[in-house]
């Protein structure tokens, strides 16, 4: 360790920094305090999520209905994929701590191997998260947003979800996409949605077995399903636009705040995982090149290990508060 820490002539002195009450090297201690401050940042975000959720406690989206997909499979599998992601991250935490342990025994071959596995685990996790974002952005069933910004979803009389695209009656419209070459030269807009609110109303009237489901939760924690007449009334009086998928402005699953916090918190965490992978790769090459072998200390592996475990630690909380509670 002495080779990594500059020792001055203050060693053994009570004052002038010669005393080391925490018995940890400078780098490790500062990594701990960085982790502490980062933990406070994350808990600030999660507490803000809790604030918004408590604000709309009777209308918050149910996570089990939002994250239901697995790559390459059709059907409804809530939680499975995110459980897999959690397991991948815990597993890569284990290989990291095994790398640290091998470092204590100055076993270069084992450290190299375990660091490599850790990096692979991290890449799988980030890839899974990208897929999860993609699915969330694309959306599932579609919904109608009301003038007040609330979401109306559609179910059949048995309570199963119905996709807007399955019953909508597409009628020709005269509305064209506004491009810079056609109107005001400094204004343009995104592509128009494939169908308008009127198409949804017409399609809804033609299918008598479809009902509207509001975002309000009832006593049992299920979303409220309106009767047929109430559904028509809500759709005609309040319906404003068709929403498919989620972004920072609209969210077909319910409150847009849910999507905002999902993107922000999992994005911030994903960025941490990404930077953790980069740090791990740098340290991996140092291990391969024998830097720590010559230094006779693998403490750098231990420091990035602390960071990597922290990323895992944060995910445990994100998992609970976004997917479980």
């Amino acid at each position: 360790m002495n080779t990594t820490v500059a020792t001055t002539d203050t060693e053994g002195k009570t004052w002038e920094g010669g005393n080391q009450p925490l018995k940890a090297s400078y780098g490790k201690m500062m990594m701990w305090f960085f982790i502490l401050s980062d933990a406070l940042t994350f808990s600030g975000f999660l507490a803000a999520y809790g604030f918004s959720r408590f604000k709309f406690i009777d209308a918050w989206p149910i996570a089990d209905e939002v994250f239901t997909h697995i790559p390459f499979f059709h059907g409804n599998y809530p939680m499975i994929y995110v459980a897999f992601m959690t397991f991948v991250l815990i597993m890569s935490s284990v290989t990291m701590v095994l790398a640290v342990d091998a470092g204590h025994h100055l076993n270069k071959k084992k450290v190299t191997w375990y660091m490599f596995l850790t990096i692979i685990g991290g890449i799988i996790f980030v890839g899974s998260q990208a897929w999860e974002w993609n699915t969330f952005i694309k959306g599932d069933f579609g919904a109608v947003q009301t003038k007040g910004g609330n979401i109306l979803q559609f179910v059949d009389t048995d309570g199963n979800r119905v996709a807007v695209r399955d019953f909508v009656a597409i009628t020709p419209t005269e509305r064209e996409v506004h491009e810079r070459s056609k109107g005001l030269w400094f204004v343009d807009e995104d592509a128009l949605p494939p169908y308008q609110i009127n198409d949804v109303v017409t399609g809804f009237e033609a299918n008598s077995n479809i009902l509207v489901r509001t975002q309000t939760l009832n006593e049992e924690g299920h979303k409220t399903v309106l009767s047929r007449t109430e559904s028509l009334k809500a759709l005609k009086e309040n319906g404003k636009t068709v929403v498919e998928g989620a972004n920072l402005h609209v969210n077909e699953y319910g409150s847009p705040l849910f999507a905002d916090f999902f993107f922000f918190i999992t994005g911030f965490h994903g960025f941490h995982v990404f930077s953790g992978i980069v740090l791990n790769i740098i340290i991996f090459f140092n291990v391969v090149l024998g830097t720590y072998e010559r230094r006779k200390s693998y403490e750098m592996v231990e420091k990035v290990g602390l960071y990597w475990h922290f990323v895992d630690l944060v995910w445990v909380f994100v998992f609970t508060f976004f997917y479980l509670v």
């Binding site: 507490a47 803000a48 809790g50 604030f51 918004s52 959720r53 408590f54 604000k55 709309f56 406690i57 009777d58």
Partner: peptide, 10 residues
Amino acid sequence: ILLQEGGYVF
């Protein structure tokens, strides 16, 4: 603090 405030806004 934040949960208390959230409940109040609700």
